[in-house]
Amino acid sequence: MNLLAIVDFSVVEIFAARSGWSGFFTLSTLVVTIAATIRLATPFVIASVGESVGQRSGVLNLGVDGVMLLGAFGAYYTTLETGSPWLGLAVGTGVGAVMGLVYAFITVTLHAQQGISGIGIYLFGLGMSDLLFRQLVGTPKPIGGFEGLFEFSVPETRFDVAYPDLYNHSILVYMAFLLVPAVTLLVNRTTFGMNVRAVGETPEAADSLGVSVTRTRYSTIIIANSLAGVAGAALALEKGIFIQNITNGMGFIAVALVYFGAWRPIGVMAGSLLFGLVNALVLQWKTLGIISGATAQLAEMAPAAVTIIALVVVTNRIGQPSALTQPFRRGAH
């Protein structure tokens, strides 16, 4: 296709899209887009807020995606067998905590290189979740997750005012966004949080002041991985299904969002919402026929492109925890 043909094609698409734009700028479509943004952002918020806690203590975990997969399977299988999404959520969290314990042992006690260990955890999670799914379930079977928290019938005549799509999310969505202030308080306003920050910046100094670097990092890694398990559980319970590699690399994006958010829960949440918003906008524009063909294919790259650009801008301005990825050995410095 030559340049002229591409221009012609785009012009045709632009004319075809005019009617779609009028459909987009309606209150109901905007509400649906915002609701989709919130839903798409939820697993990222949970996983990346958790990972930010681990990284603030100096431990990078590239295995988030693998832990999410294990958490997703644990939650899915438990819910399938018991019919209780709450039990499923608990199992997903527990699986994450166990994986956190394993990862802490590898990286803190054994001082293994964090990047490689994280990839090992990812591969383990990817393979094990698939293996368990095949052995215990076989073919995908739908499960019932959490109901919308505020689901009630809105009179037809009031629908344009009420817009239940905007707030009728499951309890997991609300829990995800409540994590942000909770973790902010934990890291910034508690003794534990002060220890976490100290261990992430200068573990030698923290150690000399009597802070146990090992215990602190074990705690943060278990918190981070538990939340990765919750993120996976949220994905499986919200979608009501599990398939091989259901996360589709979400865990790696969650790690990138920690850098995007400059290791602050509020920044991480903003990054997750931005990622979700760009995805939701592209989706709505495609649905309404505003973009199609080559333009739509280009737009599919937008979420990743926006994240990378923002990542470059943010990480050039704000420094990371000084001891990030550095194992601590008493007396080594």
């Binding site: 459909g23 109901s28 479509t29 649906v32 989709a36 839903r39 798409l40 697993p43 799509d165 994905l235 919200e238 979608k239 299904i241 398939i243 590699n245 259901i246 589709n248 979400m250 995805n279 939701a280 989706l283 709505q284 495609k286 649905t287 309404l288």
Partner: peptide, 16 residues
């Protein structure tokens, strides 16, 4: 393989 995006796409269709 993106289950989350496929789910949201279906939701968008329902919304329309």
């Amino acid at each position: 393989s993106d289950v989350a995006l496929a789910t949201e796409t279906a939701q968008a269709h329902v919304g329309q």
